[in-house]
């Protein structure tokens, strides 16, 4: 009885497939198009990110080494007073060593405060002068100026009670970028692997994104360190809110847009 049912079900499936194919010509208009999510993709959605996470976890130590060397190199070249310490994050066996740059928390001098204020005001003026077709840019500049002005005001009013250290800022940036890297394969599973792209393309996309983040992360940290040392803690709110974790995320979005334009599997 069971075999008979299975045979009937198989026959029905074949018939449905034939029928569906024949209807494609009429009903595969983009408005009605939809896709199936086969088991293989569901498995892929779990396995690929898992493998990527394990792989990333495995190589993180080497990446961290590379980052350390990178920091040493650029600290020397950029003449920044920083030194690199490796810190271990996480639990016993799940611990990951990450380089942490020890940088001084520089408070702004009055001259620096005035100069940055002038630049901020210039940015506001610029945002008002930009042509109408660059309106989004004008608003972005005003957001930049607004955040910087809050910082200027705070440091004028009560600089001593400023809560954060420059080193803490760069450290948390790197930690969050690493967390993002662990998150990326899972985000790709939910938003990219579900589509009909070939497996090599899926692997390539995640690999490229991780590679991009691995390369970008130390530059990003050094970028923050450079500004925090040379232009004091006055820059920290701006760096945190607009040039912090948003930047790697925008990189992920840009790469996602690119990968979605790749040729689809037939």
């Amino acid at each position: 009885m069971n075999t008979k049912n299975k045979a009937t079900a198989r026959k029905r499936k074949e018939l449905n497939d034939d029928y569906a194919k024949s209807r494609l010509q009429y009903h595969q208009h983009r408005a009605m198009r939809s896709y199936k999510l086969p088991k293989s993709i569901l498995i892929e959605m779990f396995l690929l990110p898992m493998l990527f996470s394990l792989f990333f976890f495995g190589v993180l130590e080497y990446i961290a080494n590379g980052w350390s060397k990178f920091f040493d190199f650029w600290a020397d070249k950029l003449n920044l007073p920083l030194f690199v310490i490796t810190k271990v994050y996480g639990w016993d066996w799940l611990a990951v060593p990450l380089p942490f740059i020890e940088i001084p928390s520089v408070f702004p001098s009055l001259t620096l405060w005035v100069v940055i204020l002038m630049i901020t005001l210039a940015v506001i003026v610029l945002s008002l002068l930009l042509p109408a077709k660059l309106l989004p840019l004008s608003y972005l500049l005003r957001v930049v100026a607004f955040i910087q002005l809050t910082s200027q005001a705070f440091f004028w009013w009560n600089a001593e009670s400023y809560l954060y250290t420059a080193a803490g800022q760069t450290e948390s940036l790197l930690v969050f970028t690493v967390l993002l890297m662990f998150l990326v394969p899972w985000m790709h599973a939910l938003t990219y692997y579900i589509f009909n792209y070939s497996r090599p393309k899926k692997v390539l996309f995640t690999f490229l994104t991780l590679l991009m983040l691995v390369v970008f992360a130390p530059f990003h940290v050094m970028f923050h360190a450079y500004f925090l040392i040379n232009y004091s803690l006055l820059m920290m709110p701006l760096l945190f809110f607009l040039f912090g974790v948003l930047m790697p995320i925008m990189i992920c979005v840009a790469l996602y847009g690119w990968s979605m334009s790749w040729e689809r599997a037939t």
């Binding site: 650029w74 070249k77 970008f216 530059f219 334009s261």
Partner: peptide, 25 residues
């Protein structure tokens, strides 16, 4: 000099993922 090199490299790397978008635009 090294400062310029650093910032050039930083912005080049930052812009790299946006190349397809800029190209399409």
């Amino acid at each position: 000099m090294w400062d310029i090199a650093f910032f050039t490299a930083f912005f080049a790397i930052l812009l790299l993922p946006f190349t397809p978008a800029i190209k399409e635009w």
